[in-house]
Write a protein that binds this DNA or RNA. Structure first.
Lengths: 236, 236
DNA sequence: TTTCATTTGTCCGTATGTATC
DNA sequence: CGATACATACGGACAAATGAA
């Protein structure tokens, strides 16, 4: 219940329905017909995403997150969704799409994924507006994701998983660093080998914190930037 | 109250008092003599920092965060504390320490800091084990931070602020990107100009979400990495 | 396979504290 | 000072997942 309320509040804020402040808790209680605890729980979710400033005795103020760079990713919302409004959807060119065993994958051993786990391997170039912006290498545990359609691999895999298996990201571990492009990576990204580029390694967990996906994404644009909001649960 | 309990739980976990699971909520209620809501609130805090996996019907499992790189920063704990256990404390070499007006600072205008705000400016080289690891450019609003001792600037400013003014980080906005080193930056960091390095721009907020500090840190080591855990408030 | 106790997840109502205006 | 609004804490009830009998 508080999940839905949180979603509605987030939508309302991003749509600009509340310009400077959120209604008071009392008003929100009346509007949604729930108890104060439930409203506060929902507000916690919104607050955690950095959309609110909370001031005791005064109210909840809207925070307008700034993403100056054209290529910016907001990591605090969970999966790496580009947060630029009305951004065009990325397209993909598949490099590899097969199955593998975790033990044979460097990324998997690095993150202590169970060695004998079977995974779908998807390596693809990601395009935005016909320009390549990332090289993505992602893996899906077949124990959790029994099937991956070629169609979804060409589009949004996460959307496919949500619709088909009701798999959603509950938590994620994110590691940001620079990688020196190897020959093959460089040619795929159309850059010089040895160039340093931002790289996001990610572990994604779903219900009950079971790992279902891990990936490594190298971003082509040197101006790429990542945003992340960290908020303690209560502000005072 | 739940804050203290959360702190105690975090300490207990990092000290290795609980190896695989946390005690049940019922036991924690008894141990701390508080209600279930309070315990759960405290656990929320711990969970948010990525130290726990929670499984309905089963319990809370300890998560051991992996930071493979020697130079790794955990951003989900708030300020940029190095999380390597027993890591030596960094030392500093001051490049600049004076006052300035926000309007004259590119970083401040970029983040829409009130133009006429007065700030302490601290530019310093950060050393770990006699080796330079970062060039830090940080600003403290004098409206919130009335005084900065030279002593603290040579050591830990955040510790000084906590002890002296009871200023703690409640929330932060973090921006990670690469910067191409300018001449002066390159010489300070002992690198070639034009080199790409990881850069963390940070806005730090204290009680009632008032901004008290913003900074930009360029990390010398190309192997530098950042960790960040993102967890939705409830896992199921 | 079913049942049942355990354990966490959600929601409610209430009371009191504290900061803001 | 009083009214408003958010912060914390308690107790109770039921739902849902887990794990063992």
């Amino acid at each position: 219940m508080y999940h839905e309320i949180a979603d509605q509040l987030i939508q309302a804020i991003t749509k600009g329905q509340f310009t400077s402040k959120l209604p008071t808790e009392a008003k929100l209680m009346a509007r949604f017909g729930v108890s104060r605890n439930t409203i506060r729980r929902a507000i916690d979710v919104v607050y955690q995403q950095g959309l609110l400033r909370r001031v005791q005795g005064s109210g909840y103020y809207i925070n307008h997150v700034q993403l100056n760079s054209k290529h910016a990713v907001n990591l605090s919302v969970g999966a790496g969704k580009p947060l630029v409004k009305n951004s065009p959807r990325p397209t993909s060119k598949i490099v590899t799409f097969d199955k593998a065993i975790a033990a044979t994958i460097p990324l998997a051993t690095q993150f202590n994924v169970e060695a004998d786990a079977e995974v779908y391997r998807v390596i693809r170039l990601r395009y935005m507006d016909a320009a390549v912006y990332a090289l993505e290498e992602s893996y899906y545990l077949t124990a959790v994701v029994p099937f991956l359609s070629t169609e979804s691999v060409n589009g949004s895999i996460f959307e496919f998983l949500a619709e088909t298996f009701n798999i959603a990201v509950i938590a994620s571990d994110d590691y940001l660093s620079m990688t020196k492009l190897a020959e093959d990576q460089a040619t795929l990204l159309d850059q010089k080998p040895g160039t340093h580029r931002l790289t996001l390694a990610q572990m994604n967990y779903t219900k009950n914190n079971t790992l279902f996906n891990f990936s490594k994404t190298i971003y082509a644009d040197p101006k790429m930037s990542f945003y992340f909001h960290s908020a303690h649960l209560s502000s005072n």
